[in-house]
Amino acid sequence: MNLFKSQKFSLSLSKFFTYFYLTLLAIIIIYPLLITASSAFKAGNITAFDLSFDANWTLDNFRRLFTETLYGDWYLNTLIIAIITMVIQVAIVTLAGYTYSRYRFIGRKRSLMFFLIIQMVPTTAALTAFYVMALLFGALDQNWFLIFIYVGGGIPMNTWLMKGYFDTVPIDLDESAKLDGAGHLRIFIQIVLPLVKPMLAVQALWAFMAPFGEYMLARFLLRTPENFTVAIGLQTFINNPMNQKVALFAAGAILIAVPISILFFMLQKNFVSGLTSGGTKG
């Protein structure tokens, strides 16, 4: 009886610590997000985020964002870069991933190793090279040059992941379709592609999100404020200690974070299978 009691006690103790940990972690996550978000609705020139609810609430910051700053331009620039990057990269990576999963050809293994190695090269660190290239091609301050770098840089890793996912689609399907007389393209488009939709969605989301967060190259290669992306633009609101526009920053941040988070949660179910299948198989 005594034993039973102590077991019960330790079970409720572990329950207590479980909930304590989960709640604490939830608070640590929500707190910074909440005080940033709430600052977007505060009137007056606030200089720091904090959790106070005695402010004057207003939507004025959003109006100022679009009338007094270049935020609209930045948003549009980033959207254009993100969408084009996403479309081109997903197309290229899908073709390459499919090929590496389905065909056996000379140089396959070697080039797969090559993808794996080149994937580790931190391309953004080749700042000077990109700068010189931009000078030669007249691409300084141009969106297309960034798109070009983002697309190329994402290919090796994502081809690996894509190939891993294609590997999970049984090859019998292709073979029976081949017996029915379907050609290369028809097997690819009509049989296999529909089965990898989850991974396509994940790849598209990541390719889309990357340009929103990339700072180093965009900061160095984009020169006029009208051509900035949101990451660089928003930083100009807070990196000048004399003239901080913290509330404007918060308002601008919300308009990015909310749509991206919604997309993220819509596709979140696909993440796990995409991640694990890509990592384990060669």
Partner: peptide, 16 residues
């Protein structure tokens, strides 16, 4: 809740 730090673009949270 635990996914939020991943869902919100990192540059925003770092600046915050």
């Amino acid at each position: 809740i635990f996914l939020l730090p991943w869902a919100v673009p990192a540059f925003i949270t770092i600046m915050s």
